[in-house]
């Protein structure tokens, strides 16, 4: 049961987006997010939606699957939308009920905020759908490396993520096993109120922690035996390297951001 939880949501493939360097995808996602916050007209939002649709199409991911990534947080989107609708200041009232009133401005602002959240999520889920967690880790390590000078432990963070990816399935299997063993001895993990359930989990957590610490110690010794001594002087089997498709992708997303900036401020600049 527990082991059925899949890690990340990588969907293997060989599309243009899949083949991009992970750093390109991370940076492009950040640039796209900036672009989202530059948009303020329907035309700008239309362009953003079009761009996201284009990227999803190029990535050859099943559209339904990408949309499903919104599911866990649709409630947050809805709440954001409602709060903005009711609280935005405005004159043109469209609807009133007792003390509540929705203004046209509120309606527009609410829709805008919801749209921003949806676009942000869709775009970043394309990143995780098209990049395996391992490659993503490599990308993050490489991107953070310049910040080592100011104390960002780039290699250590990446090593932690690598080990976490390796051991989460193992620990889930183990949790499953301990749960089954204790259920067989009469333990109950699925009834009672929250406090009772938390209390019932305790006999599960203790052996799990003990075993996790033992594993960590053994793994550390095994790593030392394999000449591990930190990130200094380490090489990689797959060295990341930007290819021409990466420059194409950067070009596209930077063009998008600049375009939206011009749409927003361009008129003002012309007037000057």
């Amino acid at each position: 049961m527990l082991s059925e939880i899949t890690l990340g949501q990588y969907f293997p493939g060989n599309s243009f987006v899949h083949r991009l360097d992970p750093r390109t995808k991370i940076l492009a996602t950040l640039i796209y997010i900036i672009a989202i916050f530059l948009a303020d007209t329907p035309l700008a939002y239309g362009i953003l939606i079009g761009f996201a649709a284009l990227v999803i199409a190029v990535s050859q991911l099943p559209v339904g699957m990408v949309l499903k990534s919104l599911k866990p947080i649709w409630i947050i989107i809805l709440i954001t939308m409602i709060i903005h609708m009711f609280t935005a200041p405005g004159e043109t009232v469209v609807f009133t009920w007792k003390i509540f009133k929705i203004t046209e401005e509120g309606l527009i602002l609410g829709t805008k905020m919801a749209l921003r959240l949806i676009l942000l999520l869709l775009f970043s889920s394309v990143l995780t759908f098209t990049t395996s967690p391992i490659v993503l880790t490599d990308g993050i390590e490489k991107l953070l490396r310049p910040f080592k000078a100011i104390g960002v432990p780039a290699h250590e963070l990446a090593m932690m993520m690598t080990i976490a990816l390796r051991f989460i399935p193992t620990l889930l299997e183990e949790t499953d096993r301990i749960m089954k063993a204790q259920t067989a001895r009469g333990a109950d993990f699925s009834s009672g109120n929250l406090l009772e359930r938390a209390k019932n989990m305790l006999p599960l957590l203790v052996p799990l922690f003990v075993s996790a610490f033992r594993r960590a110690e053994e793994l550390a010794i095994a790593m030392e035996s394999r000449c591990y001594r930190g990130g200094e002087g380490r090489t990689r089997m797959h060295e990341l390297a930007y290819k021409s498709i990466d420059y194409t992708a950067f070009g596209a997303v930077i063009f998008l951001a600049v375009g939206l900036a011009v749409l927003r401020w361009g008129a003002g600049l012309c007037a000057l």
Binding site: I134, T162, R215, R226, R234, R236, M237
Partner: peptide, 30 residues
């Protein structure tokens, strides 16, 4: 050195990545 517990000596989530771990540590060219 090979140890008793097969789970606690594999570092990476893909077999070939794990086998590459040692050479990477001693700085073998990519």
């Amino acid at each position: 050195m090979v140890f008793q517990n097969p789970d606690n000596q594999i570092v990476a989530a893909i077999v070939e990545e794990d086998v590459a771990f040692g050479p990477e540590n001693i700085g073998v060219p990519s």
